[in-house]
Design a protein around this nucleic acid. Structure first.
Length: 324
RNA sequence: GCCGGGGUAGCUCAGAGGUAGAGCGCGGCCCUGAAAAGGCCGGCGUCGGCGGUUCGAUUCCGUCCCCCGGCA
């Protein structure tokens, strides 16, 4: 009812050209870029996470990059809080927020909100993991079946992380997770999202993925990994599990040939892209474009679409809901 | 040319006289605080070609083609 500020979210699989498009949109429409990517929030992990270059960041202001150190845990809830903070600042300055979204969960957490569920408990998780090791994952599934039957039905007995989270919520909250999830969530207020999606043809996307992995290596990715390890960073830290970092670490340990590591990275990236596509297909209200974000035709089409949307929003404040 | 080994899914290969399987790949899907994580589902095939034996052959026999070793 009150005037909602528009917000642009560009979704799409890795290597589809979201960053380039985000910059272009921001430049032409008076915006700034907000990364929505679970890996780019980590400092020092730059090349492998395809973080926008410093040159790109000079062209347009970027937010929500480099938020935490590699030792820190960062969650969807953290993302939501940080993003809302940034959005407040942009709104005050009349700047259009342009999200480049690789991590669908983070976008959903921001726009739709999260349940009022307890945060992680590292101690409890450690204990549950130990029990799973000792007695098998099925043991946890039986526990979940007692605590929260509906969740136990939905979560496979082989899906350890989800079982652990569900048990954690039940125990910490003293109520079944499925019950908490039924409560209404606090969606983002004061903003009306416009979602555009990039969906290049699969074969072209995969070719781009393969090429980009090689380009990252040419840009010094291996040296980046070597440097991080030389700093004394524990190889067990989470960012070392990101695609590529684990494979390159294996290569540096002498376990695999570089060429083999590259193939593994390319394949893992392809699988990741596929999962992203599946997730984004489910995202409501996305206007899809078939090309890459750095392709002039696709970018032009997106820009035309966006200006029509923004104009429409201005022209009809009473709006008729404009078919969200 | 001869002697061996082999030609089965996109790849690596298992199998058996009743019409085919595994891993990987690939595809589809799920997801409410570590999501670049984790999980679920799917065989996608002239069993090298052609003949023969048989109720029935991809499996047995013959022949041809191709690949890999060795000897020439």
């Amino acid at each position: 009812m009150s005037t909602a500020t528009p917000l642009v979210a560009i979704v799409g699989p890795t290597a589809s050209g979201k960053s380039a498009l985000g910059i272009r949109v921001a430049e032409q429409m008076g915006g700034e870029v907000l990364a929505c990517d679970s890996t780019q929030v980590y400092r020092h992990f730059d090349i492998g996470t395809a973080k926008p270059s410093s040159e790109e960041q000079r062209r347009v202001a970027h937010h929500l990059l480099d938020l935490v150190e590699p030792q820190e845990v960062f969650t969807a809830g953290d993302y939501r809080r940080r993003a809302i903070e940034v959005l407040g600042g942009l709104r005050a300055r009349g700047v259009l927020p342009v999200f480049t979204v690789g991590t669908g969960l983070y976008l959903r957490a921001l726009l739709e909100g999260l349940s009022d569920a307890p945060a992680r408990s590292e101690e409890l998780r450690a204990r549950l993991r130990k029990q799973a090791d000792r007695r098998g994952a099925v043991y946890l599934h039986k526990m979940l079946l007692r605590l929260d039957p509906p969740s136990a039905v939905r979560i496979a007995a082989t899906d350890l992380p989800k079982m652990i989270r569900a048990i954690e919520v039940c125990l910490e909250a003293g109520r079944p997770m499925s019950e908490l999830h039924r409560q209404p969530r606090a969606s983002l207020e004061g903003f009306s999202p416009i979602r555009v999606g990039l969906l290049p043809p699969r074969a072209a996307l995969y070719a781009r993925v393969d090429k980009r992995v090689e380009a990252m290596l040419a840009a010094g990715w291996l040296e980046e990994v070597r440097g991080l390890l030389a700093c004394g960073l524990d190889p067990a830290e989470k960012p070392f599990q990101f695609i590529g970092y684990s494979e390159l670490r294996a290569h540096l340990r002498g376990v695999v040939e570089l060429s083999q590591a590259v193939k593994s990275i390319q394949q893992a990236t392809r699988r990741y892209a596929k999962r992203q596509i599946t997730w984004f297909k489910r995202e409501p209200g996305v206007e899809w474009f078939a090309g890459f974000g750095d392709d002039p035709d696709a970018a032009g089409a997106v820009l035309r679409f966006l200006s029509a949307q923004l104009e429409g929003g201005k022209a009809s404040p009473a709006g008729a809901g404009s078919g969200v």
